[in-house]
Write a protein that binds this DNA or RNA. Structure first.
Lengths: 191, 191
DNA sequence: GTCTATATATAGATAGAC
DNA sequence: GTCTATCTATATATAGAC
């Protein structure tokens, strides 16, 4: 059911804060100030920071995954286009807006300081994406659209790692060219 | 001159804490407790956290850079070996010990919350490494040892991004295989 | 150079009035 | 459901005794 507008609002702001500043740098205060409520009101919706964090990642996974599954299943979309849609989701969409890092990548760097429940979700995040990508690569290779060497799993791992690193450095230098370079490298690997 | 044993000790511990937990998750208290002194004693050596952080990165850059320059200039080392030594410095050495992330990579993810002086140092860190790598790749290509397409600069950017992403994910999943995959990818690009 | 004591700000969290 | 008030812990930082 509808979990109220404020509930979603809190999640939205928390998500943005994690993507820009990281888990340890954001506070209930930041969120409260932005919405115009008190921190105790946030505790009404999310008893602890750990639960808020977990909810942010869980929602993010669901949204992204639903999006990706639709792309994979749509036979009207070419394989080249599918890869491009994927890169857009994880890439330009996050970075282009306000120097956001990938949510999973940000939390991966905070991993040793995260509550275990959130650590778990972060791994789910990457497992899901990797699995999806592996499937796409595998299918595309069988059908003759992709031409990489090695397993689809390895290729998926490679692409994900390159993606995360490129986002990190593009953001640091505020240089979108670094994203383009990664994109081209990935494409030159597959086509 | 010798800046005293405690001075270095503080830097060592701060460096490790940043590489494992990030800039915002470490405190003077953590360091004080580890060494067995009071936080006010740390302020004697480093008036502010920003100055401590800056000193950590500056020292790290100097050490790593000196190491890399020696490798580049030593004509007794093959180009293949030079690349391997580089990957060892930035890679296995950091990760293998206690799930450390690359210092620069960790601070890159914290970048929007860092004091400007540290932001600046982080960019110096990557500029230095990239420049060094670009030189190595360029020389090696001219001499016929490397066979990549495109500019040495682009190739250096690619390698660095892949490196950072691989470290991040290898650490998250405590899976060193992810480092090996990146290594092989890089080698297959160059040889 | 290291300590105690303290200042000030902020964190996450809870109780209970409205 | 949102507030005020409060708790406890922790953060960075400074003053000044020893």
């Amino acid at each position: 059911m509808n979990k109220s507008k404020i509930y979603d609002n809190i999640l939205d702001i928390a998500e943005t804060l994690i993507q820009t500043q990281g888990y340890n740098a954001f506070s209930f205060r930041d969120i409260a100030r932005t919405i115009g409520i008190k921190t105790s009101s946030i505790h009404y919706y999310f008893p602890t920071k750990a639960e808020l964090g977990k909810a942010v990642v869980a929602r993010h996974i669901d949204t992204l995954h639903a999006e990706l599954v639709q792309v994979l299943e749509n036979e009207a979309i070419s394989y080249k286009k599918k890869i491009n849609l994927f890169l857009n989701s994880v890439f330009s969409k996050t970075y282009a807006s306000n120097r956001k890092m990938c949510l999973g990548g940000m939390l991966a760097s905070d991993v040793l300081t995260l509550p275990e429940t959130i650590q778990f979700e972060v791994r789910v995040f990457f497992n899901r994406i990797e699995k999806w990508l592996e499937q796409l690569l595998s299918q595309g290779k069988t059908k003759g659209y992709f031409h990489f060497t090695g397993t689809a799993k390895r290729e998926a791992e490679f692409i994900l790692a390159l993606l995360e690193g490129s986002l990190l450095l593009a953001r640091l230098f505020q240089n979108e060219d670094k994203l383009k370079i990664a994109r081209k490298k990935i494409e030159s690997h597959l086509f």
